[in-house]
Amino acid sequence: MLPNKYTYNKYGTRSNQTDRVTKRSMSDSKIGSSVSYSSTDLRSGPSSSSSNTSISSNSVNDTGKSKTQEVNEMDFCNHVLHNDARVRNDSSIKYIRNVNNPFEGYPKLSKLHQLKRSQMIKHAVKPYGVRIPTEKIIPTLYHWIEVYGIKFDVIMIGALVENQFILPILNNIPFHKLCSKPGFLFIWATTQKIQELTNLLNNDNFNKKFRRSEELIFLPIDKDSPYFPGESVDESILLFERQQWHCWMCITGTVRRATDNHLIHCNVDTDLQIESTTTNGKKNAVPDALYRVAENFSNSNRRLHIIPSKTGYDTPVKLRPGWIIMSPDVMINNFNPKQYKEELYSKSFVHYKASSSGNSMNSTQGNGNVYSNAHFLVPQTEEIEELRPKSPVIASKNG
């Protein structure tokens, strides 16, 4: 069955069949002021041709409306109303035009993402999984620290399922020994858990160790998405806020964007990530966007993802190159600490930095109280350095 199509004139109103025939016989300069839309494909919204009218920008039409007023009337709301589109409140996000290609119109940014992705894959350790019951997560982390001296530069906590915010586990993770300095923490929660997340980051295990730097948001495209929060929600929260997943990115240690470009690349991604319509319905507890944000921001090669509790058969936990994923439901259990440390040295650019305080199990003692701490990094190319966003250089004032 063919989709219903309606034609709109330049004022945003639906024209009848007689008007449509009349418009087809008009000159090319007039045809540009009418647009046809399909009621089955609303993603692109009103096209740019809707503003291609034959009048000048300073002139007015016979109704007394200027060109600017006409363009403002051809908006998405008008388009949906006149197409009789039955768009649910929870699914309007899928009609954002560049949801599948957020780099549309930004070729340099698109190229930067491709280059960083290829570098990450080239230098990533193989994907590791640690299938472990929830109650054994904390003892296992202590075992890694005490026996193998393992540290991580990037730690992510939680998946986009609602039973991941387990306070007893989060309060007892030994971050002071597990996370290197500088290090980065990404922790996810729903809007309903945001106050609990605030209290969590203010307790002794986090306070004075991590400082909150950025808040990231992930939006599922509709209620059928596997990442959409469950039905047990507070009805007093606005619908759009109910859909949101929040992530607080926290930093421990000192990192400066102007001088520590070997550690971090800022502003490569936006703070808002939207689920792609091409992946809707695919089962995975963690969308790729969550990992990409962390990988693009931090150039560190030691990454740990802790998913505290079961996610269920409908949302399996898949492995990802460059990450150790710790979960009761991770698909493969293949982590070997010794093999992992050997791979780190072979795959990473190892940058040594002298430190005069703190004895790390991952450090080599030098003369006196000076220690040389190793940073395992993804090496960056000159092309990446040229393309990436940078902080403006402030000229020094001559005294």
Score class of each variant (00 low, 15 high):
2 L>Y: 09
6 Y>N: 01
17 Q>G: 10
23 K>M: 14
23 K>Y: 15
27 S>G: 00
30 K>Q: 15
35 V>I: 06
35 V>S: 02
36 S>C: 05
42 L>I: 12
46 P>D: 06
57 S>H: 03
61 N>Q: 13
74 M>I: 07
78 N>C: 14
86 R>G: 07
91 S>E: 04
94 K>G: 05
95 Y>G: 01
95 Y>Q: 02
99 V>A: 01
102 P>N: 11
104 E>Q: 11
105 G>T: 07
107 P>M: 08
109 L>W: 14
114 Q>L: 13
118 S>K: 12
119 Q>F: 08
119 Q>Y: 15
120 M>H: 10
120 M>L: 14
122 K>N: 10
126 K>L: 15
132 I>A: 04
133 P>A: 11
135 E>L: 09
138 I>F: 02
143 H>E: 04
147 V>P: 00
150 I>A: 01
152 F>G: 05
154 V>I: 13
160 L>M: 02
163 N>G: 13
164 Q>D: 07
171 N>A: 07
172 N>L: 02
172 N>G: 00
173 I>P: 08
173 I>S: 00
176 H>P: 03
176 H>Q: 01
177 K>H: 06
177 K>D: 09
178 L>V: 05
180 S>Y: 13
181 K>C: 14
188 W>V: 08
189 A>R: 10
190 T>R: 03
193 K>L: 14
196 E>P: 13
196 E>W: 09
196 E>K: 08
202 N>T: 15
202 N>A: 12
212 R>N: 06
221 I>T: 03
222 D>S: 10
237 I>K: 03
239 L>F: 05
239 L>V: 14
240 F>C: 09
248 W>L: 15
251 I>D: 02
254 T>V: 07
255 V>S: 08
261 N>A: 05
265 H>A: 11
267 N>F: 05
268 V>A: 04
273 Q>C: 10
274 I>H: 00
275 E>D: 03
277 T>W: 06
277 T>Q: 04
278 T>V: 13
282 K>G: 15
282 K>E: 09
283 K>W: 01
287 P>R: 08
292 R>Q: 02
292 R>G: 00
294 A>Q: 10
298 S>V: 05
298 S>G: 04
303 R>H: 10
303 R>W: 02
305 H>T: 04
307 I>S: 00
318 K>Y: 14
318 K>V: 12
320 R>P: 08
321 P>K: 01
323 W>P: 06
323 W>F: 05
333 N>V: 13
336 N>S: 04
342 E>M: 11
343 E>F: 08
344 L>H: 03
346 S>T: 15
346 S>M: 13
347 K>R: 13
349 F>L: 04
356 S>R: 07
360 S>Y: 13
363 S>D: 05
371 Y>H: 10
373 N>R: 00
378 V>R: 01
389 P>R: 02
391 S>A: 06
392 P>R: 11
395 A>M: 10
398 N>H: 11
